[in-house]
Design a binder for these strands. Structure first.
Lengths: 244, 244
DNA sequence: TTTAGCAGTATGTATGAACATATAAACATA
DNA sequence: TATGTTTATATGTTCATACATACTGCTAAA
């Protein structure tokens, strides 16, 4: 607790400063191992702020299931915490990118299309509205590995002239002020038809790992509907899951 | 807003009563359509409670991403709310169980075997140690859907006489004092060979969603190594992912 | 020895108050 | 017309305070 302090002059609200502090604090091994946090009153006095403010900060972490409070006892870090891991999750393509795997585009095709019912309903748009459709064949040096089809919500304001060779989410965040928050995914397996086999350079009948996902903004409004066909021999979808 | 009121005498805390009220309130079509909620001060005065208490209640819904607040403007329901359930994550079999899907065992086979290298190394055991191997064919009334193979760490103390017809993790937790915490999963796709096709009642060459996972205890020690072969036409692996 | 009860402690609930700040709309000015 | 300016409004932040309640452990009575 020692090296932490609060800047009353900062533009950053006190409760956010405390929240930050708590996040760092609970990474310490002793708290990870079940030691009770200093109690709210103590923290408040130590930092020279009100208990309410400390509580406000801690509430956030409690909501995120990082902390559990027990009346009459204290507050401690949740064991085998789910959220910690989940917060660091990204989609696996993203993860690939981060890990420095050289993922290059074999082909990019951008069109403006009238989408089918499923997408209209998901995007909650008029069936005649055109949306940007992006098809990408991506892979490593040895060959293509995944075939993506993406549809973008018209709200974003993408056009066919957009430069899709740059990293997609950088473009969205910088040029279109879209921040990405949540995505929902469904994974299944299919076998390659002629078209997919040609694209991914595999045989007809070979297994394909198939993923649909919806990328949303912090308000849970859909941004992108994405379908990915992965060569099953090149990809394993790896997940760490925590049960409660 | 009219028919709602607060019982100051109730054992239920005021903020929970308000939370309930808000949940009902925002189901009204006008709020679903974007109408601003009554403002906090107004609600508080109307209900004869403090603004803080109203805020405490609303905070919960804001955190659940049901509501968005905008300073100087007001609070409204989040649009396009695609059922968010970010907190209660479980593996999908677990989820199935919870949702009351009747999953029955078509066949169970228990043997004690000398495992292969992969498992020895994972379990960190002597290559001659026998481990309990459990094979289960599970499914719904319409037929088998998944073929499981599980290996259990000898530390658990399972024997061939164990009753595996009962829910597995209940047995482990109650009879063997094992608590389950984390599992790591890898998912891929394969095509059915003769054996799998027969078991799952599909054709050779049909796609299969293939999952390996390691279930661990809170100390991250392996408990179970599990391989699952899912009929891809019956299963979609659904995931909600949170990015930060 | 067991148990009932009490005191200490930490969180839970609730209030009222004050001021900050973002937003939109009305208004005024160049 | 276009651009500042004011004002009303609603949420955002923060504080001090009081009492309720669940849990732990100690102590005294049965």
């Amino acid at each position: 607790m020692e090296p932490f302090s609060i800047d009353h002059k900062s533009v950053l609200p006190l409760h956010l400063q405390v929240e930050e502090m708590l996040r760092k604090l609970i990474e310490q091994p002793e708290y990870q191992n079940g030691k009770l946090l200093p109690n709210e009153v103590h923290i408040a006095r130590k930092l020279g702020i009100s208990r309410n403010t400390v509580r406000q900060a801690a509430n956030k972490l409690v909501h995120e299931q990082l902390l559990v409070r027990k009346k009459g006892v204290g507050t401690k870090v949740v064991k085998n915490n789910i959220t910690t891991k989940l917060n660091k999750w990204t989609s696996f393509t993203h993860e690939m990118d981060e890990k420095g795997v050289v993922f290059k585009n074999y082909s990019i095709k951008v069109t403006a299309v009238v989408p089918d019912k499923e997408i209209c309903s998901l995007f909650n748009i008029n069936p005649k509205t055109k949306v940007i459709k992006l098809e990408r064949l991506r892979g490593l040096n040895k060959g293509p590995v995944v075939y993506f089809i993406s549809y973008f919500h018209p709200r974003i304001g993408l056009t066919e002239k957009e430069d899709f060779s740059k990293p997609l989410y950088e473009t969205l965040e910088k040029d279109h002020h879209v921040s990405v928050a949540v995505s929902k995914e469904g994974i299944s397996a299919i076998i390659a038809n002629k078209k997919l086999a040609e694209k991914l350079n595999i045989k007809i009948g070979d297994p394909i790992l198939f993923r649909k996902r919806v990328v949303c903004d912090p308000g849970d409004r859909p941004i992108e509907y994405n379908i990915g066909y992965y060569r099953a021999d090149s990809f394993t979808y790896t997940i760490d899951i925590a049960k409660d």
